[in-house]
Design a protein around this nucleic acid. Structure first.
Length: 275
DNA sequence: ATGGCTGACGCTGTCAGA
């Protein structure tokens, strides 16, 4: 089972890339961020014709998340408020369409587009902090039903210095600060593991390259798109990689997709036959 | 070389992203 995350920077601008990639990769579950369109304009038909179900939570111009799946999509939860009700900033945090979750093949898939935060001393950073704190509460609540969890998306945080092309240039700046790294660590709560790092410990693995400064041509990137798994499903993961090919195309998204290959559902072992 | 790109909206510019 292949599960992927991709910030497409507008689904309507990128539909041909996404369609081509999905067809070639045979991904089973694709989680999109920055779809940038209201639900009525989302190109659902393109995916239906390829045999996929679609669940979306979009808004005009900004943000927007979607789950595209070959398997049935069950128990869809849009925004934070279908899971938690006790956060004081819930209504503000729900205005931006940044989280969609569903159960697919008995896995709780949680697709997130974490706010960027602009700069550490800005109001937008306060929003990012609150959003991540709310996500922490959301995960605690949703964990209670005991399904394996796959939390994935655009986190707008480089977890370690080796996830940044020139870390010394970005000490304590946005996406690199110790404050954000701590907030992310709290979200993961010792339970969710960065599956890419299980298979690829080395540096120079980027998922995002700035459109400016010829960042792609000079390979000056960041790894800010991640897939996190709970141990029950992490043990079934075979590989995880970043597919740079779509970033090399004409008019690309500034992000590349990240994919995990999981042997799922796991083979049942009938203990009685061993006796 | 931290905004010297890009997309949306909707109009020849502004906002936001990261």
């Amino acid at each position: 089972m292949l599960v992927a995350t991709w910030n497409v920077n507008s689904i309507r601008s990128r539909i041909d890339h996404v369609k081509e990639w999905l067809t070639a990769q045979e991904v089973d579950v694709l989680c999109l961020q920055e779809t940038k369109t209201e639900d009525q304009f989302f190109p659902i038909d393109v995916f239906s014709k390829l045999g996929y179900e679609v669940s979306i939570s979009g808004q005009k111009s900004y943000n927007g998340v979607a789950i595209i799946s070959r398997f049935p999509i069950e128990d869809i939860k849009i925004g934070f408020d279908q899971v938690i009700s006790d956060h004081k900033d819930l209504s503000i945090l729900n205005q931006q369409k940044r989280i969609i979750s569903a159960v697919i093949n008995d896995i709780r898939i949680i697709n997130v587009y974490v706010p960027n935060g602009a700069s550490i001393d800005s109001d937008k950073f306060i929003y990012k902090k609150k959003w991540l704190e709310c996500l922490h509460g959301y995960l605690k609540k949703i964990d209670s039903n005991n399904l394996p969890i796959c939390l994935l998306g655009d986190f707008n945080i480089a977890p370690e210095d080796k996830d940044i092309h020139t870390p010394n240039n970005y000490k304590e700046s946005i996406m690199a600060s110790s404050k954000e790294r701590k907030l992310l660590k709290d979200v993961l709560d010792g339970k969710l593991e960065d599956v890419f790092r299980i298979f690829e410990p080395g540096d120079k693995n980027w998922s995002w390259w700035d459109y400016r400064h010829s960042a792609w041509a000079r390979d000056k990137g960041w790894r800010i798109d991640h897939i996190y798994l709970t141990p029950d499903i992490l043990s079934c993961a075979n590989s995880c990689w970043i597919d740079k090919e779509p970033r090399s195309k004409e008019k690309p998204s500034d992000h590349a997709p990240v994919i995990v290959d999981i042997s799922w559902p796991p083979l049942e072992i009938e203990n009685e036959f061993f006796f």
